Computed example of a mutant assay.
Amino acid sequence: MVNNIDFMNYNLINRKIISNEELEQLINSKEKFYLKVFYEKPETIFKFFPNTSSYNKEIKKDINYSHLALETNEIYLNEPSNFNDPYDCGIYIDREKHWSYFINYYAKLMGIENKDNSKELLIKKLKNFFNENSDIETSINFNYCHTEEERLRLSIFIYKIRNYSFEKISVPDKICYAILKALNDDFLEKKNNLTDKFLISCLTAEKDNILMWSHYANNHKGFCIEYDLSEAKYNYLKLNDEEKNIFNNLFPVVYSGTRKEIVNYNFNGDTFLFWYLLGLLRKYHVWSYEKEWRLTLLKQEYPNHIIKFFPIKAVYCGCKMPKEEIKKIKEIIRGKNIDLYISKIEEDSYKLKFELSK
């Protein structure tokens, strides 16, 4: 039972209990993680829709986007900032540790030695650099930068300090103020990295959860779509590049009772999975009833926030959906080889049953 799991030491992934140690091993092995997820992906997956209309300012009329999802087989990708859980897609970074790391990082790129690892000493040396060099553009020494990325990061950091030092603000030490403000920019950039770069669509492994119907299907007046992943799973090599990208980026959520601190502050290809599992895919265990699978895609690749998803297998209408709305659903899916089910309340249990509509 989920309620009996020690979520401080264990996690729930795709309805399986996994220890913190096992999760660490997966994080440290991309191949094992992606292979595990690939074979555990379900043959069908579900998404709930409210079946309500909202006003579109561009065309100046109401649109039922739930109907549109049925008509076009498209899924909307949302920004994490719009989610109802304030912790969703958030990461935990200790501000003081982060500042200490990047003070040393930028000082190293400038060739400033600091054997005692003193923040105060480094800030003093950085201040001296800016006080002694009026022409910053020609004073930057890139000899200690080993990559183009390091050169770029150092340039941005120095220019930020210079610009912040020109702000009209009354502070005892403008250079120190500018350094700390530039470091805080780094902190906020890292903290918002996941939410700024990705778009997400939330799906689930089950169609009969009462809470899901209540929360995401307009109190059972909406509907649930079942998508068929079997062809993608068993004939993966026949997928086109976009279909593979969508299938590859469908992951089960990690339900946990802890927020693990990010200690590797550089977000790149080597640290991607680490940040991914601790941010985009990690949720507090009280949400585990959702049994969520999460489609996560890069915002820059899908600027319209819309993707064509896998084939629709069936539609399940909520037990409170009016008959006239059911008729509309039938019209939309007519001739599309999609089954339609009507949900009913079980009399002798707290369960829903689904009857195939003829």
Rank of each mutant, 00 (worst) to 15 (best):
K233H: 00
T258S: 11
K283M: 03
E301N: 15
F251A: 07
F247V: 07
Y289V: 02
E189L: 15
L203G: 13
A217F: 01
W275K: 11
D173Q: 10
N218G: 08
P252H: 00
Y234C: 08
R282W: 06
K207F: 05
S230F: 05
Y216R: 02
D208C: 01
L273M: 09
K260E: 14
D185G: 12
L273N: 03
I225D: 06
E242S: 12
V253E: 01
F247K: 13
L199P: 01
T195N: 13
I225M: 05
E301M: 14
D185K: 13
C224P: 03
W213L: 08
L273F: 03
I225W: 05
L180A: 12
I175K: 12
Y236T: 10
L239E: 02
I200W: 01
F251V: 01
N245Q: 13
L237H: 14
G257W: 04
D208M: 02
Y265H: 07
L199E: 04
L239N: 04
G222E: 09
L278G: 09
L278V: 13
R294C: 02
W275T: 08
N266Q: 15
F223P: 02
F267W: 06
K233I: 03
F187G: 02
T204S: 06
N218R: 02
E243Y: 08
K207A: 07
Y255H: 05
C176A: 14
L280W: 02
D208N: 07
N304E: 07
K207W: 03
I225V: 10
W275L: 12
H220Q: 07
K197V: 13
S201I: 03
K197G: 09
F187D: 00
V254A: 05
L280K: 14
N249V: 04
F267Y: 10
E243Q: 05
L281N: 06
N218F: 11
W275P: 06
L280C: 12
F247S: 09
Y227S: 01
E290Q: 00
Y302H: 06
N192P: 14
Y177R: 08
Y177I: 06
I179K: 08
F187W: 11
K238H: 12
W287C: 00
H215D: 08
G279K: 04
H215K: 03
G222K: 00
L229M: 05
T271P: 08
N184M: 14
S214E: 10
Y236L: 12
C202V: 03
E290I: 00
R282H: 09
S201H: 13
S288G: 01
S288V: 01
P252N: 04
T204P: 03
L250D: 09
K207P: 03
K244E: 00
N304I: 13
Y177A: 05
I179G: 07
F274E: 14
L229A: 05
T195V: 14
